[in-house]
Nucleic acid binder design. Structure first.
Lengths: 233, 233
DNA sequence: TGTGATGAATAAGTCTGACTTTTTAAGAGT
DNA sequence: ACTCTTAAAAAGTCAGACTTATTCATCACA
């Protein structure tokens, strides 16, 4: 599941990364490489590699004679999938989920519009397949099966947009959808309206109707926003 | 300017990172840490730290008995500001600029709409100040001055949206705007229509008119897309 | 009293060499 | 042709010595 575990430095990151993003070491905190190496019972070289990775994520800054300083939250590389995963695993998961859902609501409609123009025949087929899978699992508490096809659906849309930046958000969307199913709302079957919308988006993309695909996807994301009470009254 | 230069491993990254993103080592290529350390004339520890950073960006994968393998392009962390900078500095700058401009066109209108709801009085003041600065530098080949205020304007919008994910795109937008001014189109003064739109967005945000701010910003981004011939006829 | 230079302490940075572990590929034996 | 053993290759890990930049405190001088 986790990217790390790959070597000792990865294990250190699995522990230290979430600790930092959770605010266990608040911004401004100063850590010392040697102390960390001792407390994790690894060599300094391993700890240095871990610190380098955290530094590349802009989570910390390493300065001579000072130590390793935790940077302010607003400087973190919040698009780094690893950082996203760490934060979603922590206490401010709800806030994180809201930020990402707003992001989705901006991106996915545009991506769907582009997908309607660029999708290959194969991608259209995948899309309808996913939509049918969603329909098949929409009743009777088959939440996991539904989630699986939901994630696949949105991933195909993003890939079919033909835009590299959109395509790479597939993992993020997957995390958001999974988080919603597993921890937040959605204990009941999904709303029939939402399921229908997905089927209609698949149709619109297949028909090459960009405007319609965009509008329908916008309705899907509005639903997602409402579920999190994000829309102001 | 560059984040690196911070230590030996940073210098190695400044050289190796762009080489990889430029395709000098195509995906699938296998590098050996020891050889790299020799060719860069640094110790293995330093080279290992550099490789760890590249690994955290998903640019390479390090496996025992095999070496350091360059990953396929579609697995790279393309939202990493460092990766973006490396790619913008390379040969596929135009393609990169298009991807990012499409991304902007999806995000900024929504961000502007949110800004209209959430912007503080201070942010509104900054915004009008930026807009006025753009007007002041819109004629007579004062492109650098115009760019400066343009970047500041969009940064304020993104920050004022109140959404962390939007806010962190300020640097990306800055790179795109700078790239456009310095290397692509825009050798003449900016179009008067574009300047006017920025002023109107500032007004709409101050007035709290979300729908209008969003629509006006959408017109701005449509202009940016047209400049790059992205919109199909 | 304030200010600038000096120097010592500190923690990161760097290098080296020896050793371990995992993984792949070759070769021996059936 | 197939499996098991073995050897080689490259990353991974560790320990220790040394270097360098930065900060802070002290002290001399204006």
């Amino acid at each position: 599941m986790s990217t790390s575990g790959r070597g000792l430095h990865g294990q250190v990151l699995d522990s230290l990364g979430p600790a930092i993003t959770a605010g266990e070491y608040p911004p401004g905190s100063v850590l010392r490489t040697d102390e960390l190496a001792q407390s994790f019972d690894v060599s300094r070289s391993v700890m240095r590699e871990a610190v380098r990775v955290l530094e590349s994520m802009h989570l910390v800054e390493s300065r001579r004679r000072v130590g390793v300083t935790v940077r302010p939250t607003n400087e973190w590389n919040v698009y780094d999938p690893q950082v996203i995963r760490w934060r979603l695993a922590g206490a401010d998961r709800p806030r994180q989920l809201r930020s990402l859902t707003v992001l989705r609501s901006a991106l996915e409609p545009v991506a769907a519009g582009l997908a309607a123009k660029h999708a290959t025949a194969e991608q259209c087929a995948e899309l309808t397949e996913c939509a049918l899978g969603m329909v098949a699992h929409s009743r009777g508490h088959q939440l996991e099966g539904y989630l699986f096809h939901d994630i696949a659906f949105h991933r195909v849309i993003l890939n079919a947009s033909g835009n590299e930046m959109f395509a790479r958000l597939g993992d993020v969307v997957a995390e958001v959808l999974a988080g919603r199913t597993h921890h937040e709302v959605m204990f009941e079957d999904p709303l029939p309206a939402a399921v229908t919308l997905h089927v209609q988006v698949a149709e619109a993309v297949r028909a090459g109707d960009a405007a319609r695909a965009e509008e329908l996807t916008r309705q899907i994301t509005v639903g997602a926003l409402e579920e999190l009470d994000i829309l102001a009254p």
